[in-house]
């Protein structure tokens, strides 16, 4: 048992070191991860510590505070950057069927993609809106706290290796054309049709620390809230509520819900499985 007692001490120390690291990250750089679920954060920081051959998260913190530019590595590690075009195709089918017909009744539409990461889902929406002849009168705001992933999003250039999956997602999501209409292949990349981004504004916005963003008709924020603890999740959903017009829609990730936010009664469930909600008119 002696060995495992030593190991327990190491695990407990890591808990403390992570708290200190997150404190440093917040007070020095203004990125607040203190209310994220900790298990994931620890995993990412331990991974980075080992990958760099460092002995402890304290050493990683030293690097964060003293090495210029190292913050970018940490932000990349802690960003939620795994995404794909038309992820969960059934979500898009329901949006097309239940939400877009209502949005069509507005002369001008605002959509906010919160936590858009590298932008794949933003362009998926742009494609769907174009096919529904709505793109011209829609303003899409795509935001993320991480300027590096936003830069990728802005370019709209993605690895060609993913295109096969994206094509089958697009078809399953109710796409009405050939997916190859929307990109040009070049070497090992695809460049998305630049016209898609005419009405997209990419901007830095931090859901944890920034305030109300816009008066949107639809907010899409998928697989971001699952990284937050209950209190942060409730705070962010309140931010969404205050950033929606009355009768506006909210689309979450398939495992997310309003259950623990204290705001479930402010929304009508449009699709339980696809996590599409509508803010009540009153």
């Amino acid at each position: 048992m002696t060995n495992s007692k030593e190991y327990h001490r190491l695990l407990d120390l890591q808990e403390l070191e992570v708290d200190l690291f997150l404190h440093a990250l917040n007070s020095q750089f203004g990125y607040d991860f203190r209310e994220y679920n900790k298990a994931h954060i620890i995993r990412r920081l331990v991974f980075r510590t080992k990958a760099l051959g460092l002995n402890s998260i304290t050493e990683l913190q030293h690097k964060l505070l003293h090495e210029k530019g190292f913050i970018e590595t940490i932000l990349r590690d802690l960003s939620i950057s795994v995404t794909e075009m038309f992820r969960d195709p059934s979500f898009y089918i329901r949006i097309r069927k239940e939400v877009l017909p209502i949005l069509k009744t507005y002369p001008y539409i605002k959509i906010w993609h919160a936590g858009c990461a590298t932008g794949e889902e933003v362009y998926s929406f742009a494609i769907m809106l174009q096919e529904e002849k709505l793109l011209d009168r829609t303003q899409i705001y795509a935001t993320d706290f991480n300027p590096i992933v936003l830069e990728t999003a802005r370019k709209g250039i993605y690895p060609i290796a993913r295109i096969k999956d994206y094509t089958s997602n697009y078809q399953a999501a109710g796409g009405t054309r050939s997916f190859s209409d929307y990109y040009i292949a070049k070497y090992d990349s695809v460049i998305l049709d630049q016209r898609l981004r005419t009405n997209i504004v990419f901007a830095e916005h931090n859901l944890v620390t920034d305030s109300v963003f816009t008066e949107a008709h639809l907010i899409v924020c998928r697989n971001v809230l699952i990284y937050f603890n209950k209190s942060l999740q409730a705070k962010v959903v309140a931010l969404f509520k205050n950033s929606l017009i009355k009768g506006g829609y909210l689309g979450l990730g398939s495992k997310e819900s309003l259950m623990f936010t204290g705001l479930a009664d402010q929304f009508v469930v449009i699709d339980e499985k696809e996590k599409i909600f509508k803010l009540k008119l009153q």
Binding site: N37, A39, H40, R43, R44, I226, Y227, K255
Partner: peptide
């Protein structure tokens, strides 16, 4: 769930990620 990592938090609750 398919396509999600499952983790255990200190307060003995489950968290999921798509990392």
């Amino acid at each position: 769930p398919p396509n999600y990592h499952m983790l255990v938090e200190n307060d003995r609750t489950i968290s999921l990620t798509v990392s």
